[in-house]
């Protein structure tokens, strides 16, 4: 694997036209972004059509028929995706960092950025679609159980899906990129843990809503646990700085030859 020709990817040295080169380089990001946007759009259409029609009463047969299978499906898909991909990435990890050429290493950074792009696109989908759909829902509808249609989408799919991508990405980075191998990037870990902890925080949220907080005020302190965990995104900046530092070095080193010629 370490021997493959990585020059075109890493250094953008192919012979394609500008546009074709762009799509070729970023095909991972485009393909997977398109897939997740499609998934997001499908869920959105499902929510729009089935939300208020069959989603307002957990105890109705319709709810059990049209919403609970969605929930179970989501949990099964996300669980198996995370565990399966993480296991695969770990089993196929690189054991010898020194066998990785600089070009390959650089191309992996570009791949890492592609992975982050896909996650970022999903983050945008969550922000524009999912977050306030839950606000809108709760402020016009009486909460019956923890499994309202908007919860089934945001709490049990949208946010966990981000974790489901972050965990394999974390493992991939720490098993494929020499600068991250045999150690752990603190900011990356913080981002993963923060987003992951949002799921256990549902427990507090739902417990509180049944026990001491009956209103549907979105800005209520009971929701601030999510806010605090969202702060884990602050760690994207130090993580970006780690990546910037490493990529700058690699780009400088891999383009040195050029530099020598032009000087």
């Amino acid at each position: 694997m370490a021997l493959e020709n990585t020059q075109p990817v890493a250094l953008d040295a192919g012979n394609d036209s500008k546009l074709a080169g762009h799509f070729k380089r970023n095909r991972f990001a485009y393909t997977f972004s398109a897939i997740i946007i499609a998934v997001g759009a499908a869920l959105r259409i499902y929510l729009d059509t089935m939300g208020f029609t069959v989603g307002t009463d957990y105890y109705s047969d319709e709810f059990q028929k049209y919403w609970m299978p969605v929930l179970y499906g989501e949990l099964i898909i996300l669980g198996s995706f995370t565990i399966g991909l993480s296991t695969y990435l770990w089993m196929t990890r690189e054991t010898d960092a020194s066998s990785i050429s600089k070009e390959l290493e650089l191309s992996r950074y570009w791949k890492l950025l592609s992975i982050f792009t896909v996650m970022a696109v999903w983050a945008g989908c969550i922000a524009s679609n999912a977050v306030e759909s839950d606000a809108a829902w709760h402020q016009v509808t009486i909460r019956d159980t923890d499994f309202t249609p908007t919860h089934i989408i945001i709490f049990y799919f949208a946010l966990p899906a981000l974790t489901a991508m972050l965990i394999p990405a974390f493992i991939w980075t720490h098993t494929r990129i020499p600068a991250f191998m045999n150690k752990i990037s603190l900011p990356f870990l913080a981002v993963v843990c923060g987003i992951l902890m949002i799921m256990p925080n549902y427990g507090f949220n739902e417990w509180g809503h049944t026990f001491f907080y009956a209103e549907e005020l979105f800005a209520a302190p009971i929701h601030w646990g999510f806010v605090f965990l969202g702060w884990s995104l602050f760690f994207l900046i130090p993580l970006a700085m780690q990546i910037i530092g490493q990529m700058a070095r690699l780009i400088a080193e891999t383009t040195t030859e050029d530099l020598g010629q032009s000087a």
Partner: peptide
């Protein structure tokens, strides 16, 4: 966008 949406909306 995700960060500020979670922060601000909640």
């Amino acid at each position: 966008i995700l960060g500020v949406q979670i922060q601000f909306t909640l």
